[in-house]
Design a protein around this nucleic acid. Sequence first.
DNA 1: CTGTTAGCGCATTCAG
DNA 2: CTGAATGCGCTAACAG
Lengths: 345, 345
Amino acid sequence: MRPTVHDIAAKAGVSLATVDRVLNNRPGVRSVTRDKVERAIATLGYVRDVAAANLAKGRNYPLVFILPEGDNSFMRGLEGEVRAAMARSASERTQITILPVPAFDAQALVQALWEAHQRRPAGIAVVAVDAPEVAEAVKQLRDTGITVVTLVSDLPGSGRDHFAGVDNIAAGRTAGTLMGRFTGGRAGPIAVLAGSMLVRDHRERLEGFSAVMAEEFPARQLLPVIEGQDDPVLVEKLVRALIEREPDLAGIYSLGAGNRGLVAALEQTGKSKTICTIAHELTPHSRAALSSGTIDAVLNQDAGHEVRSAIRVLKAKADGLAVIEAQERIRIDIFLKDNLPIEQA
Amino acid sequence: MRPTVHDIAAKAGVSLATVDRVLNNRPGVRSVTRDKVERAIATLGYVRDVAAANLAKGRNYPLVFILPEGDNSFMRGLEGEVRAAMARSASERTQITILPVPAFDAQALVQALWEAHQRRPAGIAVVAVDAPEVAEAVKQLRDTGITVVTLVSDLPGSGRDHFAGVDNIAAGRTAGTLMGRFTGGRAGPIAVLAGSMLVRDHRERLEGFSAVMAEEFPARQLLPVIEGQDDPVLVEKLVRALIEREPDLAGIYSLGAGNRGLVAALEQTGKSKTICTIAHELTPHSRAALSSGTIDAVLNQDAGHEVRSAIRVLKAKADGLAVIEAQERIRIDIFLKDNLPIEQA
DNA sequence: CTGTTAGCGCATTCAG
DNA sequence: CTGAATGCGCTAACAG
């Protein structure tokens, strides 16, 4: 049987309360007594039963998730994962509130952060917009003792406690290697389709992609970046124009959202099989396009992992516990039509 | 505040004991009473606090992991993950024993299963050897009420409760698509290097790979399978001979272990950059070869996920709970040099 | 500074 | 068939 607080109280010749004080290093214990207790803890190899402790404490973690509104499939999937976490609230002792904000709107985000603050949560997870006023708001939150983690898109210089998202430079490099090798057999230039260069993750993906293309495939021509604002309608128009302009186009790297428009343009111009297409985020649309062969590869960040990781970190930091950084690192998944995961309900 | 057993006892006008009987549907309750209680449960929206229940029960799960011995890096990594799980035993209420057995030895495995049986564990996880006597042993274990999950390599027809491993046909297909596309720019045949065709996962990978090559890249010549017995020394010899025999070799798909020998042969013959190489399992060796460019892609199964999943399933089945199959599905990871995960300590 | 006591939410004797 | 009482391992008043 594992040793309990009783065992160590007996061994040290003190009461439960004193043991508890030492365990949670609260004040009010003579250092002699403390030593006795600590020795007992060590020799018995005591480890605290966290479940029992939480039960006794009745601890729970009020958390706020600030997520962008809009019909971006990835973001809706992310929200779904947060809702799934809400369903687990009971066993995880969390109580999660979702605060929706207009996408790419720094002012609105600052406002939302303020609202979140009012609720005095233990922690906040936020899909950040990369603007100084947002960073400032985050700083203030942290000064109040609220833990903040950025989700999907980071906000360096804000002092956020943690970033739950992928290394987007590495993602861009991965896309570059795949693109270079997949198009190895044919000539023609390659186009890059972004959402907006004002967003940090998009900038970083481009950086990684361009670097690999320059290093490893210097002969391949890279067309100037096209910005589709993550809007399917605009994206479709732009890609149609692109295809007309560049009849010999070998590949398209879509590093943002709005892939519905991209797929439509490729399929309706009959170019879906001849242009190598690499996109980001596994959504119902990109998944279908991958299956049909219109998209050749999808780089994905697992939204479920990101949400669960954010919650773990938020709870740990709220308790002043250390986080195993390596364990919380979000991987870049590569999906081909052959290794698609089973469709969730 | 969440409703507790007290609330539902009060609401239904019965005692705690009766509520408990209904909750755990034990006998000895009139159906009228049962109905009353069930109605109270429903209207209050009661959900059981599993942590508290486990505390009260003092439940724990004795588990046995049967793992192959030998210096196979992947298997050693797997063992490491089991040991990591052992370190978490306290909080997960598990007590795990590792039983090492000689690799690929059906007789020894049957013996080990018997030994495991003696310990009367709640569940057993086993890296299966695909032999009828092993299947028979597993069947008998299950008849005793012990849950059995196969790990990494499956054993269909044994009635095992669950398989914690990847879809190896899909893995082979993924390798096929990558190989076909990566070698798109050049001519030459492709070789397949297996451990042994007597092992199920190797057979399945070959099946998937061959299928995709035939369907999608029919012009590409596939050389007869070479069997290296997962032995680095033998593998190196065979690959050297292969390279000499086929000077125009375009690619090698290594679907088993012993990649140290493969890498050595490629590097020492100076062919590492000209032959497209795809291998399985991310180990220190394959990782280094991926970084240096000798290996072009590694397909991986996350041993940590497999172990954690196996434990979750073992515990759930031991409690007669349902398993969310989709959640326990192990993904096929694709690693290029660009998206390698951070090295663990 | 230290000890006593009463729960947290649930399961389980043992009486009735 | 049903209920009262006790305890799992830990924390938190409240006394001393």
